[in-house]
């Protein structure tokens, strides 16, 4: 058992099956509070799958079974009596492609607080403002909060989705290739944003972009065919990887 109390996520021998096909094999991982962890690896190696175990989004897929230990704040989140709704409130998720709801910008951000029971207008407005500021979107949208979220650009939409997550005041942020659908400038803005956010949140980000992983993260995990092959400080992974395969992958010789 981890005794260090700034450990946020702890997995030991975590296995996951889609029906009979194994997607995660004996994953051991230990993610510290208020750090950015990058997950890299070739397509289909299980990065998204791992990420989705952390907020139990895999529950939505039929015939998924998991085995092993997965603790968040020292609580086993796979226990049957776990309140999934509360878990997902604590563990926010930003998806690969921006998926704003077809409603106004304000309503998008206010959605989370509202479903968690906040009715007070002022409280909602405050949360919306705070979250949009945190997501570095406020200046661009402050005059058009009632406009449809679908009218924003892709990069703005993604920051809106981040704001939407921040509004429920999570502790962990899961990001599955959050910039893969964006242009370089929007990507840069989100990377800057990450540096701000890590002061408050524990962030796990999946990325296919090696520079991005190197730029933003403290720790990097390299996944290969369902295994966490190498897991170390980002510095180490990118300068002196232990495995030949890691080296091949990060230098682009993989294949």
């Amino acid at each position: 058992m981890p005794d260090n109390n700034n450990i946020k996520v702890f997995a030991e021998k975590l296995n996951l099956y889609y029906g009979h096909t194994q997607a995660l094999k004996d994953i051991n991982i230990c993610i510290k509070e208020k750090e950015i962890t990058a997950l890299i690896g070739p397509s289909g190696c299980g990065k998204s799958t791992f990420l989705r175990t952390l907020n139990r989004m895999n529950d939505l897929i039929p015939f998924v079974t998991t085995a092993g230990t997965l603790l968040i704040d020292n609580q086993d989140i796979n226990k049957p009596d776990v309140d999934v709704v509360a878990l997902r409130k604590k563990v926010g998720m930003v998806f690969q492609s921006p998926n704003p709801f077809p409603m106004s910008i304000f309503e998008n951000v206010a959605y989370g607080p509202k479903i968690h029971g906040i009715k007070d207008k002022d409280e909602l407005s405050y949360l919306v403002l705070k979250s949009l500021k945190e997501a570095a979107l406020w200046d661009e949208v402050k005059d058009q909060l009632n406009k449809s979220a679908l009218s924003l650009s892709g990069g703005q939409q993604q920051r809106l989705c981040i704001a939407r997550v921040l509004a429920v005041e999570p502790e962990i942020l899961l990001m599955d290739e959050p910039t893969s659908a964006l242009d370089p400038i929007s990507t840069l803005r989100i990377e800057e944003l990450l540096q701000e956010l890590k002061k408050q949140f524990t962030i796990v980000i999946v990325t296919h972009n090696m520079q991005q992983a190197a730029r933003v993260s403290h720790v990097t995990g390299f996944f290969l065919t369902g295994e966490l092959l190498e897991y170390d400080l980002t510095e180490n992974i990118f300068t002196k990887p232990q495995h030949k395969k890691t080296e091949d992958y990060i230098t682009g010789r993989f294949g």
């Binding site: 709704v85 997902r88 704003p100 479903i115």
Partner: peptide
């Protein structure tokens, strides 16, 4: 209705009915 919208809502901690 796109699946992504359902996932976004559930990931925010909404219940199924919400």
């Amino acid at each position: 209705v796109p699946r992504a919208l359902r996932e976004a809502s559930l990931a925010l901690g909404a219940t199924k009915w919400q």
